[in-house]
Amino acid sequence: MSQTPATGDTGTVSDGNPAGRESAETESNKAARKRRRREPPPDPAPLPGLVDAHTHLAACGGRDPDAVRAILDHAESVGVQQVVTVADDMVDARWAMDAAQWDHRAYAAVALHPTHAAELDDDAKAELEQMVADPRVVAVGETGLDYYWPGKSESCATPAEQAEAFGWHIDLAKRIGKPLMIHNREADRDLLDILASEGAPESVIMHCFSGDLNVARECVDRGFMLSFAGTVSFANAEELRAAAEIVPDDQILVETDAPFLTPHPYRGQPNQSYCLPYTARALARVRGVDDAAMAGILGANARRVYGLPLQ
């Protein structure tokens, strides 16, 4: 327990008091941690051939052509050749569409995130249907179920609203013939049951896969793609690494979900697509393969499932 000055003291602890030094050092450490959280991670060693299967360029600051180009130039310098930038709401969907037009290395996925499912009115449906017909849009997403936020956020859609919107997005992906990008948080069973009852599209991508080994096996058996973010490198993610180990070579993807989920040892710092090689190397260690071979597998899978051209 830290000591406090005696009653009547001026509040100044003398330089000779060890408790004073400890307090100052603690404050200094806290300040240093805050500074580190604002600092971007250093560039990883280049790992050519990668595709960031899920990022949010607008949330990373990419809201004009110059900013998008800077983000993608940085990513390309370490081997990340293409990215899929993803929408959460209609405003985000328009940003994603813009980014995909501004830079040939960016492609878009558009949908309403499950927490925004209540916003799926007739106007939103019509606009999304128009958007997904664009060749620069390579997936319908992110859509799905999120059982974490209901009850914690007044603006979050209810589970019933989420399920209804999810069903509409599933149908849209099947009608347009493009992959369905899934957001799943604490809703494994219901989400898989809805996919089964509605009939899954040919290509389903489990974005930022977070399930256990049993869920991973069920997704693999159904032919889904499992996309792993920086969470797979976290110290407490043993179950997630076990899931990553059993996914067949042709069903695994890698993503940043930037600006979130920065991989170890930079957890909590700002994330961008240039950080993707850290997670790709973490997957290579989990799967016991060479880094370059892992990058080749991950990049080829993303280009196949999204229909991206070779760079």
Rank of each mutant, 00 (worst) to 15 (best):
Q3W: 15
T7V: 11
D9S: 15
T10G: 08
G11M: 12
T12D: 12
S14V: 09
S14N: 13
S14A: 15
N17K: 05
N17P: 03
N17V: 12
S23F: 12
S23K: 15
E25H: 12
T26C: 07
E27D: 15
D43V: 01
P44L: 00
P46L: 01
L47E: 01
H56V: 03
A58V: 03
D66A: 13
V68Q: 06
I71R: 09
S77G: 04
G79F: 00
V83Y: 10
D89N: 15
V91R: 08
W95K: 03
M97Y: 15
D98P: 04
D98K: 12
H104K: 13
R105T: 11
R105N: 06
A106Q: 08
A108S: 14
V110E: 00
V110D: 02
A111K: 10
T115W: 01
A117V: 08
A118H: 14
L120K: 01
L120Q: 00
D123V: 13
A124H: 11
A126H: 12
E127P: 01
M131K: 09
W149G: 00
P150L: 06
K152V: 07
E154W: 01
E154P: 02
E161H: 03
A173W: 03
K174P: 00
L180M: 05
M181K: 04
E186H: 06
D188A: 11
D188K: 05
L195I: 04
L195G: 05
G199Y: 04
G199K: 04
V204Q: 11
I205S: 05
M206R: 02
D212K: 04
L213E: 15
L213C: 02
L213I: 14
N214E: 14
A216F: 00
A216M: 05
E218A: 15
C219F: 12
V220C: 12
R222Q: 15
R222H: 14
M225R: 15
M225A: 13
S227R: 08
T231L: 06
T231R: 08
F234G: 01
L240A: 02
A243L: 06
A243N: 05
I246Y: 14
I246A: 11
P248H: 09
D249P: 00
D250P: 00
D250Q: 12
L253K: 11
P263D: 08
H264N: 08
P277I: 00
P277R: 00
V289K: 13
A292C: 02
M294G: 02
G296F: 01
I297H: 05
R304W: 05
Q311K: 03
